[in-house]
Nucleic acid binder design. Structure first.
Lengths: 193, 193
DNA sequence: GAACTATACGGAGGGTGCCTCCGGTTTGTC
DNA sequence: GACAAACCGGAGGCACCCTCCGTATAGTTC
């Protein structure tokens, strides 16, 4: 559990071919299963879909979170990287656009949202890389908006993401409603003298 | 399933004494259990605590939600009734105070929050009476604030409650953080020309 | 290409929770 | 006191979680 031990990828020999294959099969099956049966799909169901024993699934992914992470982390990172193009836009617009993308994504992945946001203000644990990506993309946007005096200075990215994440988790029926709620909240983020 | 049938309380004979007793025992046990073992306590555990067979529990409360409602609905209604004294305060302050009370309560009852808010914008289902109480208390406060031009006119109580509920569900570690996020969101609710 | 071993597989099994069903018991009534 | 309606409670079937370990296989060495 110490952070000083040698990273496994430098000491361990490469995984066996069958192990890698099964890992991929499980992730693929999980992605499908989460998509069309909801994110509370049982791990046994996923193992069945992947044509893999339950034991194998558990060896690769000791917890449900670990699997969730493997399924979604890549997508979050893509989304964050895609935020690079926002740098050209005006500070406020860029921030708003980023937040909207994030919410749109999270809203479709309730399970991810719930788990990921649990770790937003904790430093350790899973989803560390997602958290890092989120910060790399969001921090500059927020700071720029604050320096341009279009966003209130008395807050930080952690709060913004938590607020926005809370909104993303709202179970709305009407389509435009979440956007409107988000708009209200973002108005609260604006600078006022 | 039709809404035209006679309400049960007008046709059915009063419950038997033992049934009422057990009902109360289960609610009491559930309240305790949810309080000190979290709201995911198993129904069997609650039945054990209540010294009641699992079958009895299920007869009185066919679903987990039904039990949750029996445990918490009274509290929500109390909270809403207690909002009457806010009528004397300035419109904006009254609205803010109400929202703060609501969030403070919901934050301690994550399970309730999650379930209740699922029904905020649906008309049927459980938690109907909670919903009614919420509206009776909140609607006048919001409308008064809107008429006084201190709250934005382009929203309604449903949105406000959903926004606030989303925030209440945020799992924060630092104590003041949720209040601050709420403050930001409420700023977004203010009137601007 | 055969022998060997670290690595990985997979499913049986024990534990828990969900929910239903129905034989037996209790309550309220006549 | 007797009777029926209402109610009780737990056994049992099912699904899921997770662990453990005997068996199979990939990769390595000669």
């Amino acid at each position: 559990m110490s952070s000083t031990e040698t990273p496994p990828e430098l000491t361990a020999r490469p995984k066996r071919a069958d192990a890698r294959r099964n890992y991929e099969k499980v992730v693929a099956a999980a992605r499908e299963a989460f998509a069309d049966r909801g994110s509370s799909t049982s791990l046994e169901e996923i193992a069945r879909r992947a044509n893999v024993g339950i034991g194998t699934l558990y060896r690769h992914f000791p917890t449900r979170q670990a699997l969730l992470e493997a399924v979604y982390v890549g997508e979050v990172e893509d989304l964050c990287r895609s935020a690079a193009d926002l740098a050209e836009q005006p500070p406020w617009d860029a921030l708003v656009a980023f937040v909207h993308r994030l919410v749109a994504y999270l809203a479709t992945k309730q399970a991810l949202a719930a788990e990921l946001l649990d770790y937003v203000d904790r430093d350790a644990g899973l989803f560390k890389s997602s958290r890092a990506a989120l910060w790399a993309a969001g921090e500059p946007l927020l700071r720029r908006a604050q320096e341009a005096r279009v966003a209130r200075p008395d807050t930080d990215l952690s709060e913004v993401i938590q607020m926005v994440g809370g909104i993303a988790k709202i179970p709305t029926t009407e389509p435009g409603q979440m956007d409107h709620i988000l708009e209200i909240a973002l108005d609260g983020l604006r600078y006022r003298e």
